[in-house]
Amino acid sequence: MIPGFPDAQPIAGLIGGLMIGLAAAIMLLGLGRIAGVSGLAARATGLSSSGAPRGVAVAFIIGLPLGAWIVALLSGGVPATFPAPGLLIVAGLIVGFGTRLGSGCTSGHGVCGLSRLSRRSIMVTALFMGSGFATVALMRLAGAI
């Protein structure tokens, strides 16, 4: 627990983060590819004509819920609260389009690109973090949260 931040889960966050980084390291050193979820999801669903071999993309994308399911099974449930479906649809459309236009998301640019010190990933990550902070601040100002 961090003083002043009663809801923070730094230890769980760090352990989960290390697992994510290890997963990305396996993709890089095993298959020579970036573990970027948006790119692999587009590839797996046929919405991208370039990138990893289709089978690799499909296997990785199936792995995501499989791993989540195993954790839920062992831990007896994972708490989650979602915004209203209307907001989720708007958010999903923008995230899908934006991650393709921006060539990646939190995993490819954030975890893989930042650790590579890629200038492009540092810029993209700074921009999506900044616009995320601004969006939530505006939602608060508008009384939406």
Binding site: M19, I26, A59, G63, L64, L66, A68, W69
Partner: peptide, 9 residues
Amino acid sequence: SGALFGAGL
């Protein structure tokens, strides 16, 4: 890799 990634998330 995907499963480890999903578990970590």
